[in-house]
Amino acid sequence: MRDLPRRPLRAAPDLRHHRKVIASRPTPVAWLIAPAALLFVLFFVLPFAVMATMSFFSHNPVSNPNAVLTFRHYQRFIDDSAGIFHEALLSTLRIGLITTAIALAIGYPLAHWMARMQSRLGHALLLMAVIAPMLTGIVVRTFAWMTLLQDKGVVNTLLISWGFTEKPLPLMYNEFGTVVALVHIYVPFMVLTLTGVIGRIDERLEQAARSLGASRARTFLEVTLPLSVPGILAGSLLVFALSISAYVTPSLMGGTSVLTLPMLIAQQVGTSFNPGFAGALGVILLTVSLAIVVAYNRILARLSGQGNLA
């Protein structure tokens, strides 16, 4: 109220001052995010900080007094004398990108259909169909894919008995089988994310485009698709993040021929007892995938003609 004397006295209170007082005190609702913030700090920020710190030490600095600061874990990855590290990173990203692309291709039409469904019953049934697979664990679903795709599995047996092929097709213990199972597991995330965004697009926008002379296909490309970009972005990031960090499915479906970074990290921690190198691998994976995410965000934002989305 310092500047009060300079102004004529009015019935209206000094709103500027008022707002400041309100803003300085957190609202009761703000306290509700405290548990989430605590969890985030405790189970993401803290572990990640520890992991990142460890990646720059020669030994565990807590238990080993001879530990020194070093860049050698990163050097080891860059040198890649065994010739597997770079391939593991590429394989991880390749699996992540292909899984995301296929999940988007399958999920978008499904989400569009679901978002635009008039019948409530139909919508509920479809939602159940999308969510139901999520009720069984990842391990169970991966084993189900193994019984389908292995050499003596359902698919190969059928293909051979119908005469399409003589020898069983290599459907698993490779990246193909890994991607198939990952797509199946993560498509619901894509669908649910997209349905929310597409459902919020005003149908009258599409009608306006139609009345202005756009065919159905043109309307989709000019209006519906650009407006669903935030959903495409969110869904893709979710599926990409989940599939590059997947461990169980690549291990089971990929067998010995697939090595992803999460599998490599598990090896370093579990059998090689080298948490420093594991930490370095984690930091590398995070950095590379963040770079991809930022690039993807830029490209989509430019394509849809909207400002920065995330």
Binding site: Q207, A209, S211, G213, S304
Partner: peptide
């Protein structure tokens, strides 16, 4: 070939 004006205007937000 008809013009249409909607109550919500239905302008393309993007």
């Amino acid at each position: 070939d008809m013009g249409m004006v909607f109550q919500s205007y239905a302008l393309f937000p993007h």
